[in-house]
């Protein structure tokens, strides 16, 4: 198992490096932090030089990522120019805020998607199945920003006294009181959950149906097992196997910060920081966030594969 994990990391870490390299070169090729200075040269030569120094701009574009990698090896992520804090600090504080909505959204969507999948698969082509399938179709057609805007408007504005959220308030309103946190996270969590439930329940339904049509399900019924047991033990265990990968992906995406939803609810998570970094060509921040999301993907995929091995005895991780 340990050997497996090491091997997996050895296979994926280089990929992550290549991705980071490509992003670095891509941004360097297309942006120039000195753009504003060219007009005033040579008058502002000092400022020009400072920036050249800070961004290693005298280094060849294709080699520049290596200075970033070198400092990464020393645990140095650089300074975010758009926020004015060390990138490590930004990732930590913003990452915490993101987790505050990502974890509940993940749990809620996983549970609901699972329940809906089982229901729809067991009652295929029933009224309830059509209803939930229709809802999922509808939910899937909503871009996250349309959904978030509608939810914000309906629940945050029209029903302001319910949740006490004003549109476009900046930042989490309060700190530590659990009730207030709950009030603050409700709408973003709701937006995210609806999207993920829509996507996952359709996939889950398909997986569950596929499983329910397998021969071993017929065997389980022929043994005289009650349908409940057939579904929740024999079918679910098998249907979960592909779902685990999906959940791993969801969780890493959520933890990486939902750019749209967080921006709309002015949630001070990783998403809005990323967008701001993009517009300000804040290369260290962008790379920091790409690194973080990449690590989440790598990590949770690994977790998913280990779960695979636990759920499915045919798969051996070595």
């Amino acid at each position: 198992m340990f050997a497996y994990i090491v091997r997996r990391l050895l296979a994926t870490v280089p990929l992550l490096m290549i991705a980071l390299y490509a992003v670095h070169v891509g941004i360097s090729l297309t942006t120039d932090p000195r753009a504003d200075f060219y007009l005033c040269l040579p008058r502002c030569q000092d400022g020009f030089d400072t920036i050249t120094e800070a961004y290693n701009l005298d280094v060849n574009v294709w080699l520049r990522p290596f200075t970033w990698f070198a400092s990464l090896l020393q645990g140095e992520l650089g300074e975010s120019s758009s926020i004015g804090e060390p990138v490590g600090e930004v990732l930590r504080s913003r990452g915490w805020n993101t987790a505050l909505i990502a974890v509940p959204a993940f749990v809620i969507s996983a549970v609901f998607a699972l329940l809906l999948s089982v229901y729809s698969a067991r009652h295929q082509y029933s009224k309830g199945d059509y209803f939930f399938t229709g809802l999922a179709f509808f939910g899937l057609a909503f871009p996250s920003f349309v959904l978030a805007l509608i939810i914000q408007n309906v629940f945050g504005v029209q029903l302001e006294n319910w949740f006490g959220i004003k549109p476009f308030n900046t930042g989490r309103k309060t700190g530590t009181n659990p009730l207030e946190i709950l009030r603050d996270i409700t709408l973003p969590v709701m937006s995210l959950s609806i999207l993920f439930i829509s996507a996952d329940s359709r996939f889950g339904r398909a997986s569950m149906l596929e499983t329910l049509n397998q021969d071993y399900i017929r065997t389980a019924r022929a043994k005289g097992l009650p349908e409940r047991r057939v579904v929740w033990k024999h079918a679910l265990r098998n249907a979960l196997i592909p779902l685990v990968t999906l959940w791993a992906l969801n969780f890493s995406v959520l933890l990486g910060g939902s750019v749209v939803t967080e921006s709309i609810f002015s949630w001070p998570g990783l998403g809005p920081a990323f967008i701001r970094g993009l517009f300000d060509a804040d290369i260290d921040l962008i790379l920091g966030i790409v690194l973080l999301t990449g690590m989440f993907t790598v990590f949770f995929n690994l977790v998913a594969d280990i779960m695979y091995g636990v759920l499915d005895p045919r798969i051996r991780l070595d």
Partner: peptide
Amino acid sequence: GRDIAMIFQDPMTALNPV
């Protein structure tokens, strides 16, 4: 399973793999 039991054609798929 108690009074009437069945044996199916394809043993490769008739047992639950997990």
